[in-house]
């Protein structure tokens, strides 16, 4: 069973748009995400699995889920 080509296309376009929007190389977005995570973790308790950085045309969204009960 082969991978539908759409899945590859979507992955490529999503990565491409982020690097286009930030005008950076592909690896930079991961570095950025990691740096933001480190910075935030100095001030609050967050886990990598509950943390996400999303880059749109005009904004950088930082999403996290706080303390869980």
């Amino acid at each position: 069973m082969s991978v539908p080509s759409v899945r590859i296309a979507k992955e490529r376009i999503v990565n491409l748009l982020v690097t286009d929007r930030l005008q950076c190389t592909p690896g930079t977005t991961e570095d950025l995400s990691r740096d933001i995570f480190h910075t935030l973790s100095k001030y609050m308790e967050i886990k990598p699995e509950y943390f996400q950085v999303r880059i749109t045309r005009s904004d950088i969204h930082i999403k996290y889920t706080g303390e869980k009960y």
Binding site: A9, R12, I13, L16, L17, D20, R21, R57, S58
Partner: peptide, 12 residues
């Protein structure tokens, strides 16, 4: 992929 990429740039 190529057309969507350019469209994103244009929208910006």
């Amino acid at each position: 992929v190529s057309a969507i990429r350019d469209a994103d740039r244009i929208i910006g």
